[in-house]
């Protein structure tokens, strides 16, 4: 158990260290080390507000992604949906060919500034990895396990809920972990569309050549990504039959 928790702990520690470095005093010290005259940075309250916005936008997007990705993944692996499998797969893959920045930009004239275009990009970009992960996790469930459940008289729904999903759980958690990392990154890009996230100080800092808030945003965004990744790794350990790596 102790060995297994190691990756989550290490990733989490990196996250905490980055978060500590994003504190104005620490960041000003780093910027000073670069030989730059530090200008006014973001106070911790503002950083925290942006972080909470970032996290909640990502969480809403992730919930939609999980719902759509897991749902479609379960749907297309059912026997009756064999014929739409290629179509769903192809559409999800085509959506992936549009980079998140471009998706945010294309949604901007239709959905306006702020959260909505970011959410659309989050969903469009995140569904495909979750869908593929769900399908491959469900397909990895052995035929014997399924046949044994059938022989025991389980209904199709019972097989799904009590055999397939539990056996596929490690794969599903892994797919969601990728989606979490993607969601944090895409939300940061949303700052370009005016969503108030941890990407905002980065974009503003780049425009005003103001290194201190930019660096704080950089460190805080990276910290959030590492902390969420660590949380998902820990969750993978808790999941039934879960071995994170």
């Amino acid at each position: 158990m102790r060995v297994r928790q190691h990756p989550a702990l290490a990733v989490g520690l990196v996250g905490v260290a980055l978060a500590a470095m994003s504190h104005p005093t620490a960041a000003a010290w780093i910027v000073g080390g670069f030989g730059e005259e530090p200008r006014r940075g973001l106070n911790p309250d503002r950083l925290l507000t942006l972080g909470i916005h970032h996290l909640s936008l990502s969480a809403v997007g992730l919930a939609l992604v999980a719902l759509l990705g897991l749902g479609l993944g379960i749907l297309v692996t059912r026997a009756f949906a064999e014929s739409v499998r290629g179509g769903v797969d192809g559409l999800a893959a085509a959506a992936q060919a549009v980079p998140p920045v471009v998706m945010v930009a294309l949604a901007l004239p239709i959905l306006g500034f702020g959260g909505p275009p970011t959410l659309l990009a989050l969903v469009a970009y995140g569904v495909m990895p979750v869908l593929r992960g769900t399908v491959s996790a469900l397909e990895s469930v052995s035929v014997e396990a399924r046949e044994a459940a059938e022989a025991l008289g389980f209904t199709k729904l019972q097989i799904l809920l009590r055999v397939e999903l539990p056996l596929a759980m490690p794969g599903l958690v892994d797919a969601l972990r990728t989606a979490v990392v993607l969601a944090i990154a895409t939300t940061a890009v949303g700052a370009l569309a005016g969503a108030s996230t941890l990407g905002t100080p980065i974009v503003a800092g780049l425009q005003n050549q103001n290194v201190l808030p930019m660096l704080q945003g950089v460190l805080a965004t990276a910290a959030l990504a590492f902390l969420c990744d660590a949380a998902m790794l820990a969750l993978a350990d808790l999941a039934p039959g879960g071995t994170a790596r």
Binding site: V11, V31, F34, V181, I184, A185, A188, V189, A191, G199, I202, V203, G205, L206, V211, M214, L215, G217, V218, L219, T221, A222, A225, F226, D229
Partner: peptide
């Protein structure tokens, strides 16, 4: 891979 691209690019500028 975990670091968001916006953050990595900003960090590299610094």
């Amino acid at each position: 891979q975990v670091i968001p691209a916006v953050a990595l690019l900003g960090g590299l500028v610094a």
